[in-house]
Simulated assay, not measured.
Amino acid sequence: MRIRTHIAVSVDGFIASPDGLPTILTAPDFESGLSHGHPEFIADCGAVLMGRNTFAPAVGSPHWPWPNLRVFVLTSRPLPEGTPDGVVSAADPAELLRLMRDADFTGDVHLVGGQQTIQAFRDIDALDELGVVIMPTLLGEGLRLTPPKTATTPLQLTATRTFPDGSVEHVYTPSPNQN
């Protein structure tokens, strides 16, 4: 089991606009779950991991976004009413990591986002792969991929591909030469 991201980022480093709109939605040809390499990425995943802010809007939605995947939520608050059975939550990233390792699924874990959850798993050295799809747009402001004053993490490029709209996917792993 590896914990991996596949997240859209503007050229200037933002994962969302100031009003919270995910950067991927700037692509005119974006199709949820179908474009920008998502089908190939999710095919190797048996679970998804996210924070409560990403999870909550899906509860009560007419379409459950993670069919056939185990769902793990990093949150210190109770899960919203209507949460499907089987969703696992914990307030501590190390505890949630333990629960994921003990869970019955095969494949990797898609860390859906956002900034705080990605950072929480970076902080415990549990982010195995950082996949970013750089969108051909400049947002100017918004939510950055990493919080301010985050520790430096050397990365090693493992894959790159381009998409017809000019976006570029880079996949990184933590550098084995980290101190």
Rank of each mutant, 00 (worst) to 15 (best):
residue 10 S to G: 06
residue 111 L to N: 09
residue 98 R to T: 12
residue 25 L to F: 15
residue 22 P to E: 13
residue 112 V to R: 01
residue 83 T to M: 05
residue 84 P to Q: 07
residue 18 P to S: 05
residue 44 D to G: 15
residue 116 Q to I: 06
residue 126 A to L: 06
residue 16 A to I: 03
residue 47 A to F: 02
residue 80 P to N: 11
residue 22 P to Q: 13
residue 22 P to T: 14
residue 140 G to R: 07
residue 50 M to W: 03
residue 41 F to S: 09
residue 123 D to S: 10
residue 64 W to Y: 15
residue 107 G to F: 03
residue 35 S to V: 07
residue 72 F to K: 02
residue 50 M to R: 03
residue 72 F to D: 03
residue 114 G to I: 10
residue 98 R to I: 05
residue 141 E to K: 12
residue 54 T to Q: 04
residue 64 W to S: 10
residue 30 F to T: 01
residue 119 Q to A: 14
residue 130 L to I: 02
residue 62 P to L: 01
residue 29 D to I: 09
residue 70 R to Y: 02
residue 113 G to K: 01
residue 42 I to A: 13
residue 96 L to A: 01
residue 105 F to K: 01
residue 112 V to G: 01
residue 117 T to F: 00
residue 84 P to N: 10
residue 116 Q to R: 14
residue 43 A to L: 07
residue 122 R to H: 02
residue 14 F to S: 05
residue 142 G to L: 08
residue 137 T to G: 03
residue 143 L to Y: 12
residue 111 L to Y: 04
residue 52 R to W: 02
residue 129 E to P: 02
residue 113 G to L: 10
residue 23 T to F: 10
residue 43 A to V: 07
residue 80 P to F: 10
residue 48 V to Y: 00
residue 55 F to S: 00
residue 111 L to K: 06
residue 111 L to W: 01
residue 116 Q to V: 11
residue 18 P to K: 04
residue 31 E to K: 15
residue 72 F to M: 09
residue 41 F to V: 11
residue 120 A to I: 03
residue 92 D to P: 00
residue 73 V to E: 03
residue 131 G to A: 12
residue 32 S to E: 14
residue 28 P to K: 10
residue 32 S to K: 14
residue 36 H to V: 13
residue 87 V to C: 07
residue 134 I to R: 10
residue 138 L to E: 09
residue 124 I to L: 11
residue 49 L to A: 05
residue 83 T to H: 00
residue 79 L to M: 09
residue 12 D to W: 11
residue 82 G to V: 02
residue 140 G to W: 07
residue 62 P to I: 01
residue 50 M to Q: 10
residue 24 I to H: 11
residue 128 D to I: 08
residue 102 D to S: 11
residue 34 L to E: 14
residue 56 A to I: 01
residue 42 I to F: 05
residue 14 F to V: 08
residue 44 D to H: 13
residue 109 V to I: 13
residue 45 C to E: 04
residue 30 F to P: 01
residue 95 E to L: 12
residue 36 H to P: 12
residue 98 R to F: 08
residue 16 A to V: 08
residue 121 F to Y: 09
residue 82 G to I: 06
residue 57 P to F: 08
residue 38 H to L: 13
residue 111 L to M: 09
residue 81 E to N: 11
residue 54 T to Y: 03
residue 120 A to V: 03
residue 122 R to P: 00
residue 34 L to D: 03
residue 139 L to V: 04
residue 139 L to Y: 01
residue 117 T to C: 08
residue 74 L to Q: 00
residue 99 L to H: 02
residue 137 T to M: 11
residue 128 D to P: 08
residue 56 A to G: 06
residue 121 F to S: 00
residue 94 A to C: 04
residue 64 W to T: 11
residue 43 A to N: 02
residue 38 H to C: 02
residue 104 D to R: 06
residue 61 S to D: 15
residue 102 D to E: 15
residue 16 A to W: 03
residue 123 D to T: 06
